[in-house]
Design a protein around this nucleic acid. Structure first.
Lengths: 202, 202
DNA sequence: AGTTTTGGATAGTGGAACTCTCCAGTCAAG
DNA sequence: CTTGACTGGAGAGTTCCACTATCCAAAACT
């Protein structure tokens, strides 16, 4: 398969494929001459994965790189792979300003969760709760409890669905599931809101 | 309050405040002379809101503009305000390529939801499901059902919590709740995954 | 009187994700 | 064997976005 076919099959412009090759997001093809290289199905799959992470998962290319590294790495620990996916997903730089973590801490300890207080997700939770309080719309405890319960149910299922036999497949499952299920969950919540709003006549 | 105080109180640089004024994200202060204007608490609150939508809600400035317009508008319909928030949130341009909507349709009709098939959230759901299938990790029906149930539970609570007496407050509640609760939900899911992963020894 | 600060306007910056342009080597068709 | 389309690789250029920086004349404090 030459680069033009890769482009045709994936819908990604040749120039962009070359860019991804340069950036190391796509491994080089098998060089068969000074101006020729062969690509195969694995390249096509990788290319589709990159596009899915970018378009659907809303990851920046730096995050895509991390996720791909986690998948390619013969990581011994699933827990570590999960951490990589989480780090790639959580907003990297934004307002961790006044984040003393008190609001998030209250939620997490009320839920009885054993989590790393230094993880980006913890910071994100705290930043969001602080922002809501600052803008005059603090999350009420009942709502929050509902969110916690929903998150628990989802996470239990997520982890239960991980294949236990093949480590590589498990890592891929965890990483992609974490990243690509987020848009599914958000879209479902909004559609459910639409439905409830329409049927209750609000 | 002068612009420098607004800057100090909010932590936003003066240059950025001027930029927001130019962009119409912040209403102009009360001019008290050729080179003087007064700002008040409402400006400070608006500024904090803009930063929350940008930093926490991950909205682009164009989306912030739409959300602010919805809040300021004496909208008669809550349903319409919800639509505005959804439109600002859903990925605007990405892969609606092969999106024939079949996968999303199956989910929505199985759930018995009454939703607009042309809404961005529907397209986002379909795009995400297609991407997962394309990358070899189709969402299994059981997982999907769990996500649907969780989304339902959350949405019911979201809508139930809307104040029924004051329309303006209701609109603000719906719009900000939709936008700013998304990061909360995502962070909670990841923290729950951490907890489950840690406690089940995976 | 002199130093700061302000509002307003205009232009410039930096990062991200491409996209374009070249070029010489290669291949297949005529 | 020429011709013309295509390729891999490298570098520079483009677009969009969200700011920053610079000026300037007119207040405002000191």
């Amino acid at each position: 398969m030459r680069i033009s076919e890769l482009s045709r099959d994936s819908g990604v412009p040749v120039a962009t494929i070359k860019f991804y090759l340069r950036e190391g997001l796509l491994p080089p093809g098998l060089a068969t001459g000074a101006t020729r290289a062969e690509y195969d199905e694995r390249h096509l799959a990788r290319l589709r994965l990159v596009r899915a992470l970018v378009d659907v998962g809303r990851l920046p290319l730096a995050g895509v790189r991390e996720v791909l590294a986690a998948i390619d790495d013969p990581t011994p620990s699933l827990h570590h792979a999960l951490g990589t996916a989480h780090d790639a997903l959580a907003p990297t730089t934004p307002a961790a300003r006044a984040a003393d973590g008190r609001l998030a801490e209250a939620v997490v300890s009320a839920a009885g969760w054993r989590v790393d207080r230094r993880s980006p997700s913890f910071a994100q939770l705290d930043a969001a709760l602080v922002a809501l309080a600052d803008t005059g719309f603090p999350v009420d405890p009942t709502s929050l409890a509902r969110y916690v319960d929903a998150a628990s149910a989802i996470a239990r299922g997520d982890v239960a669905g991980v294949p236990r036999d093949d480590v590589a497949a498990a890592v891929q499952h965890v990483v992609l599931g974490t990243v690509l299920h987020e848009p599914v969950l958000l879209a479902l919540r909004r559609l459910a809101q639409q439905h409830v709003s329409a049927t209750t006549g609000i």
